[in-house]
Nucleic acid binder design. Sequence first.
DNA 1: GGCTGGCTTGGAAACGTTTCGGACACGGGG
DNA 2: CCCCGTGTCCGAAACGTTTCCAAGCCAGCC
Lengths: 338, 338
Amino acid sequence: MIDVARRAGVGLGTVSRVVNGGHGVRDETAQRVRAAIDELGFQRNEVARALRPGKKSTSLALVLGDLTNPFYASIAKASLEVAGQSGFAVVLGSVDEDPEGEKRAIQELVSRQVAGLMIVPDQGDHAFLQGAGVPVVFVDRPATGIDADIVMVDNEGGGRIAAEHLLEQGHERIAIILAPSYYTIGRRLRGFRRAHRAAGIEVDESLVIQLPEGNAEAAEKATREVMLRPDPPTAIFSSTNFLTEGVLRALGELGSELDNEPAVVGFDDFRLADMLPTPVTVVASDIAELGRSAARLLLDRASGADTRPPQRIVLPCALIERGSGERPPDSAGKRKAR
Amino acid sequence: MIDVARRAGVGLGTVSRVVNGGHGVRDETAQRVRAAIDELGFQRNEVARALRPGKKSTSLALVLGDLTNPFYASIAKASLEVAGQSGFAVVLGSVDEDPEGEKRAIQELVSRQVAGLMIVPDQGDHAFLQGAGVPVVFVDRPATGIDADIVMVDNEGGGRIAAEHLLEQGHERIAIILAPSYYTIGRRLRGFRRAHRAAGIEVDESLVIQLPEGNAEAAEKATREVMLRPDPPTAIFSSTNFLTEGVLRALGELGSELDNEPAVVGFDDFRLADMLPTPVTVVASDIAELGRSAARLLLDRASGADTRPPQRIVLPCALIERGSGERPPDSAGKRKAR
DNA sequence: GGCTGGCTTGGAAACGTTTCGGACACGGGG
DNA sequence: CCCCGTGTCCGAAACGTTTCCAAGCCAGCC
């Protein structure tokens, strides 16, 4: 920048002003500065910029689990887009699985002076964020220990409409497969129960299946077991996209051993869901909007444009019916090949 | 840091040394400093750290396309893990689709003083990176205009074994569906042709199908068209994961209209591939390793540990056979004609 | 003509580190 | 006793910006 100033024959401050939109600089001077910038190929150093008193970097942090899960990937993609439009980059913290690793990752990011944090929180207390002086938005799940913005999905409503759908079809023995102890899962179960109560049908507690782990294998095993009981369920509600995969795999393998193949409803849509031999109805929400909202909210907080008390944004869920034979409108959108 | 120094009754430099491993500091002094750090909740400011002459930040940049594509997501996840182990964060540049947007995003990241760039390049010249003074690793595809490390997959070999597999099964009319003009796609086609030549079978050029766009819809349309020709292919090789989806969707819809359902081989494995009514054999590679290698290489370059001339790492592809009867459930009557 | 006030402009201070030259103390060898 | 090396520590300089204050200039007004 000093070189630019020298070359243009102006002071340091003037160059800075030109670089930042150039208010209060005579047009002719600005021209000269811009010319010097081009000649020297000058590029502003964002690091030095963020060093200024009280300033933060123009980066947002995103802390989430396995990117390989389309759910997380969608959030990442959407928030990336929104941030990018405002000239912000997104820093991904390395995310170990344990809560301790999450805390370390977050502090790492804070030390990088990010302008805000978007966190899909694991269990564990997040009170340590309280005094960090950086805005935080939780995504998909609330966190304990700190009162911050949150963007999530209507989990209870989703669980409810899934159950309602099955109940309307006459199912009375519906199994629900639950990943371990996440907040979201609990809400989905609650909606499931409410729908039963509203329909006057009692939930068979032996069909409320808590998995030890939240992966497809555990769901596969549990499904096989429950379906081979003397009185198997006539429908299964799987509370998570990866679990649905396990359920379907189990059903596929059991195949002809079963008298009646159960109806399946899954939470969260997934690719190819409409092409499986057992087409699976699904409770879907606009996951990309989850990421977009979070990023937008965070940007507003970071810029100081939004000083409202912590917001709570809840996005609706909708049922996507499949298996009635007709193919649903293509939800895939345009995807670019590699 | 000044506060810490004051509190511990030491000089600024001493605190710095303690924070960075503490060589050349008496044990007792270090204790005092550490105590002060804890009391004050001091955390090193990474931004200021990166400002030092010649220093870069402890971040790696990752520039890639749609994170929603599991291929890209795997790369992101794997590189994130490797970077995290060395205390590096990963910055995702916002990626517009056009080459110009990619250039802008990259320069954005360079201005953030990242220690290195991992780029899954789009077309377009990357010569502007030449003098940037930051190490670059290209992932999955080479780029023009700059001589840098590259980590990729044996595309030609993959195309070859896909074709060999089908040829061995007696197929002589094999269609190949190609996304537009990427480097990787060209290599896959070349392998495809080589396998044919080796088998003494001529490629029917009317079955080499160039799509106008690299998405599932285009592949679906093209598949439908080719299968409804007077002499349709008996097998289809789809050069990309999303294309495979389109191919399968077309076949599913055509269904009974076809005399013989063609065999399908896709490039890149994907989730649920083994559970589809038409089980699809696949050419797979270790995509996560792509990301890991890239990150490792970049970290070594950034630290100066690796000063070799630009490397070229090529990962092997392997065939994952499906549909030989071992897995798919006997649901619909749509089995693969074998 | 002097004063006021609005544009421009220049330059110094500040941000939080790391690093480097130097200083001090201590001990051992000549 | 002097010299020198070693271990420890201090504090200033430097990194590349932004921002603030002061100053110069000019026009307009009294």
